[in-house]
Structure formats: C-alpha cells, structure tokens
Nucleic acid binder design. Sequence first.
DNA 1: ATCGTACTACGAAGATCGTCGAACTTCGAC
DNA 2: GTCGAAGTTCGACGATCTTCGTAGTACGAT
Lengths: 103, 103
Amino acid sequence: MTRKPLPQPEREEIRVETVLQALGEPVRLQIIRALADAPDGIACGEIELPVTASTRAHHLRILREAGVLTTHTEGTRRISALRREDLDTLYPGLLTGILAARQ
Amino acid sequence: MTRKPLPQPEREEIRVETVLQALGEPVRLQIIRALADAPDGIACGEIELPVTASTRAHHLRILREAGVLTTHTEGTRRISALRREDLDTLYPGLLTGILAARQ
DNA sequence: ATCGTACTACGAAGATCGTCGAACTTCGAC
DNA sequence: GTCGAAGTTCGACGATCTTCGTAGTACGAT
C-alpha cells in the first residue's frame, strides 16, 4: 500500500484568516460537513458535489493548504480527513460551532 | 438621544455560510477583534483601520447584514457591537474559537 | 506494455470582491 | 440658518476567485 502525504501547513503555520476564508464557501463547507461524518477520512471522489472533478480538486487544495484537512494517497485514490485535533487546539469550539449549524 | 436600529437579520435568518464569508477577510476580522474588547459597542470611526471611510462603511455593512454585529445611531455617530448572544446560541464556540487565535 | 481509473495542473472566461473618490445625508454646534 | 463632522451610497477600476475543459501524471489491473 502506497502512502504519501501531501504538502500542508504545520499546526503552527495555520492562520485563522486563511481557515475562515477557506470555510466561507458553499462547496467547501459541504466538503467539511461530509468529512465530519467520516473520522477516518473518505476518498475525494466519493463526496457528492455539484461541480466537476477539477473544481473539486481545486477546493480540496484550498482546504488542505489552509490546514483544514489532510490528504494522503492510497493507490490512485486520495483520502482526505479533517484535521480536527489541530483545529480544536488552535481554535477551540470553532469546528464544533460551524458543524452545529448543520443547516 | 436619537436611537435608530439599522436593518439586520433576525437570529433565525443568520446563515453560517454568510457569517464565515464575512469573517474571512482581514479588515473585517480586525473589526471583530476591536469589537470583542468593547461589550457595549464602539463608534465605527474609532476603530483603527488601514482603509478609507467608505471601505470601512462597506465592511461594517457586510458584517451587519451577515448578522455578526448590530449598529444603532447616536446623533451623527454609529455604535456597533458584536451580536455575541445570537452567535453563541447559533454556533456555540465559533466566536470564542476565532478570538482565541488573537493574531 | 497497454488500458482505464483517479486525480492534478494549466490556462481561460466570467463573476465576485475590496478599494477608492466624489457626491449626498443627517445631525449637533454656533 | 449655516457650518463642519460622521457616515453612507454610488459608480468604477483592478484584483481575486470560481468554474470549466483539456492535457497530463500516477497507479492498478489485465
């Protein structure tokens, strides 16, 4: 099994402004909600989204570079998962607060 | 003393997406931080910001329409305050989490 | 080695956003 | 009533962002 981590910021490098900017977009919020239900992460392609694959990849990149999620490769698939521990440490309550809205 | 409230969404009308979008901007985050230190609100003009008055008015409007802050008129001045209770009720921990980052 | 799958990288097009200056409103003071 | 101060509204311009299609990479299976 191949396992390569993708470039992402260390916990110390994560900035609120970037995180909020990343979360303030409908599609990305949808991704976050899907990931919140899968503690071990899910394959990017399995998230139902109203956009094409390339747009999906773009949003996943934004979220990863903001430090919101982490992605590793498993064969040809990419598994993404929320960086819940890091976010909860840096901004206690933020993630919970956002997910509580659940529409 | 003149006291007129400015148009803002009811608590039920506040949407996470809009709130996050409003908070994901450096200048607006700066405004929020300034307001967090003033429970009773402060005059918009007294917040130090690296933008002109018209831009400041624009950002305050975005924040107010998102439901993040409330503004009322006192003479020629406008006093803004965080809608902390509403936000804490809707998204418990969100505001605290964001403010915990403090820079 | 070849094929199909899963995904990314690269422009490009269109929409949205942040910023400003100028004009206008509203209020208090003189 | 006239003036100045505080703030808003109205375009406008430039920058950023979302979206897409196409081309390309990496891997597993045959």
